[in-house]
Nucleic acid binder design. Structure first.
Lengths: 130, 130
DNA sequence: ATGACTGCAAAGACTTTGCATCTTT
DNA sequence: AAAGATGCAAAGTCTTTGCAGTCAT
């Protein structure tokens, strides 16, 4: 019926928002972005759904930047650059962590590696020129 | 005089604590460790001094593990392994991030790289066997 | 109707800060 | 005496949760 097409659940909107941006947003950034289309969305709903998507493995967390958690709908392992000036996060799909490092890690730490995250920090193009 | 040798400033104790451990402790872990030698040390003092050491570049932050910031007196860039079971952080001095990746990052992201952090996650030896 | 989702406000967890006190020089 | 460090408790920030109301099937 019409209701179901007109009014998407907010959960869907949150995931779509994350998939359509490359900004690696925080919960609050997602909330702001959705204000235009869903003016009544609650921040709690954003937090709740981000946590749910994460538990389902549908999105991943990049960890925190300046104490705020950032999310990424791209769950494939990839490298990030974080600008210390403006807190922007940029994907670096062209760069890969050599596979041998994982084996070395298991060897030296006597552990079982399940994931890895490489993050470069510095100043992005805009911030470097100002 | 005697007072100055008998009673080290707590700031010194905090740095020493960080230098003598490989646990990459949080503020609260430092606080607990110091209870034995400085039973009256305040958590606020630990936070305050950790922030100060960090601002002086004398220690570095590894970012947060489960929402809690972890510190390292070793400011040289090195690789870490974080156990998702017990939140332990293990150094991997034997492993290095290929230098070429930094140049690639600057090339592809159009940025200026100042630091990099490689972290493997998984289960440590103890947690894998339980 | 039933189960799932949401808004609101309260609660929680970690960290920072104001102020008076105590140390060190 | 002056400058700096600390303890305590209050405040701050980000995030989670309880509960009642709403939506979808």
């Amino acid at each position: 019926m019409e209701g179901s097409t007109k009014q998407f659940r907010k959960r869907n909107a949150i995931l779509a928002c994350l998939q359509q941006t490359h900004a690696h947003p925080s919960a609050e950034m997602v909330h702001e972005m959705l204000q235009k289309t869903h003016p009544d969305i609650s921040l709690a709903t954003v937090y709740r759904n981000l946590a749910w998507f994460k538990s389902q493995g549908m999105i991943q967390s990049l960890g925190t930047v300046n104490g705020i958690e950032r999310f990424d709908a791209n769950t494939a392992p990839h490298v990030h650059f974080v600008c210390t000036g403006c807190s922007a996060v940029i994907d670096l799909p062209q760069i890969a962590v050599p596979h041998s490092l994982e084996a070395d890690t298991e060897k030296y730490a006597g552990c079982r590696v399940q994931g890895c995250q490489l993050t470069f920090t510095g100043l992005c193009g805009s911030c470097a020129n100002s």
